[in-house]
């Protein structure tokens, strides 16, 4: 088969199948690569951080040790866990809604030229307006409660999922669709049995990008109007002059984002592996 240029997944599956030289050698290299390197990198990073902290002093940079004790303190009184859970919940709901709307919308736009022509200008318009521009109106429209934050996360997720899904639908090889039709599939059957599975990889890509956007957005949303969440924690810490707490909040965001992405990658590489999802 000529490797289809439009579908990166095929190429990635090909690499995934590359045989390893031997079990022992593979294990040795795997441990070095998967544990050793990241740990070494982390150690270097912390040392550099410590260096910066010593250089700039505790008023500007909280040292690793101070940050650690701040983290312990915030964990003990429950603030850290609660902030994480609250932010995660908002991200989870908004992001999931973004996928649930964006993926079908993208498929519809990819399949029906008329819908694409009608909606494309809106997608192209809104996707350039960052959610932070809408924070104030969102609060005015949806109140200071959870809804406004979830809506903002939804907003930041939906376009990127839609655009990726459209690209996926348009990238389906004509021959696959023709094959389905000539094998007797109706339009609906082609949709369910060919278009949907063929689009899974780009939906996942869109979802991953959307998750990144969600983390960027949650802070702006929570900074402006929230009594809880990591954004709020960071903002409140500023008012208390606790730079170490700010550091804890920032690191918690990064760690959460990392873990969420790992979770998506895990699902993609297990449950969705056969759809050619590249992670």
């Amino acid at each position: 088969m000529t490797i289809p240029v439009t579908t990166a997944p095929a190429a990635s599956r090909a690499t995934a199948r590359t045989p390893r030289p031997s079990r022992g050698a593979a294990r040795g290299r795997t441990i070095a690569q998967r544990v050793g390197y990241p740990v070494a990198s982390l150690v270097v990073g912390i040392l550099a951080w410590q260096g910066l902290a010593s250089y700039f002093g505790p008023a500007l940079v909280s040292s690793p040790a101070t940050t650690w004790s701040a983290a312990v303190e915030l964990t003990r009184d429950g603030t850290l866990i609660e902030s994480c859970l609250v932010s995660l919940r908002r991200i989870g709901l908004g992001w999931a809604a973004g996928i649930l709307v964006g993926a079908p919308l993208g498929i519809l736009m990819g399949r029906v030229k008329l819908v694409r022509t009608l909606l494309d200008p809106y997608i192209e318009f809104f996707r350039f307006i960052p959610p932070i521009a809408f924070v104030t109106v969102a609060i005015a429209w949806f109140g200071i409660g959870e809804t406004s934050k979830i809506v903002l996360i939804f907003y930041t997720s939906v376009f990127i999922v839609t655009i990726n899904t459209i690209a996926g639908v348009l990238g389906i090889e004509e021959s696959k669709l023709r094959a389905a039709a000539s094998l007797g599939a109706s339009r609906r059957q082609t949709f369910v049995s060919v278009v949907l599975p063929a689009t899974v990889p780009t939906i996942v890509t869109g979802a991953r990008l959307a998750l990144g956007n969600s983390f960027l957005t949650i802070v702006s949303a929570e900074i402006v109007a929230a009594q809880s969440g990591l954004g709020s924690l960071i903002w409140t810490s500023r008012n208390f002059g606790r730079i170490d707490w700010i550091f804890v909040g920032i690191i918690a965001l990064g760690v959460l984002g990392f873990l969420c992405d790992r979770a998506i990658r895990f699902v993609a590489s297990t449950a969705l592996r056969h759809y050619g999802v590249r992670v």
Partner: peptide, 16 residues
């Protein structure tokens, strides 16, 4: 379905 088609490229197969 009465007219079966074998395509030049095996892109026509369903990879999943």
């Amino acid at each position: 379905p009465e007219l079966g088609v074998v395509f030049q490229s095996s892109d026509a197969l369903f990879d999943w």
